[in-house]
Amino acid sequence: MAERRSPLAGFAARFEAAGAGGRLRLAELPFLTQINVRVDPEGRAAGRIGRALGVPLPVEPGGAVRSGDLTVLWLGPDEWLVVGPDEGEDEGDARGPGLRDRLAETAAGTADDHVSVVDVSAQRTTLVVAGARSRDLLAHGCALDLHPRVFGPGRCAQTLLARAQVVLVAREADEFWVLCRASFAGYTAEWLLDAATEYVT
């Protein structure tokens, strides 16, 4: 069996070093399960999916809601990204059906609605940018207003970070997730480390 290797596996030591000053924490959260869901938010399928997730699909633009270890991100008026823990690489193992299968099964119960449930876990990897200077660091390459009043916990946005397309998620007061394309992950990590230089020592 091939060994899994995350896009930023080679950055662990440099991320660690960037946190030495105590004002920043950088880390990769590899292999999170990511399921793209497209459905009419007012249809019955959306309600069933919400009940299966334990939280309604957020309809407010830029909303991010959590239910247990799942996070549901608003990507568009009929599009969401459900992020959950790593489910390993084996399909159909002893732990039972994965998140994608559970959601697809839920959605299939309503034949009158059009629903798309797609596993896009390999599309993006997740970076944690946390610490007292996390906002300052992201602001070097992001035009959004990241002030907690505007972009606090419960908010997410698809935007550009250093010209790379990302999904930015405010997790806690000073903790963000940056979901970036696997092929852009190395670039994004190098940019973050470079921009973080002034906050490291």
């Binding site: 035009a143 698809q158 550009l160």
Partner: peptide
């Protein structure tokens, strides 16, 4: 109309 004001490059 969904996301609010964003830079033209988006």
């Amino acid at each position: 109309p969904w996301c609010g004001p964003r830079d033209e490059i988006e």
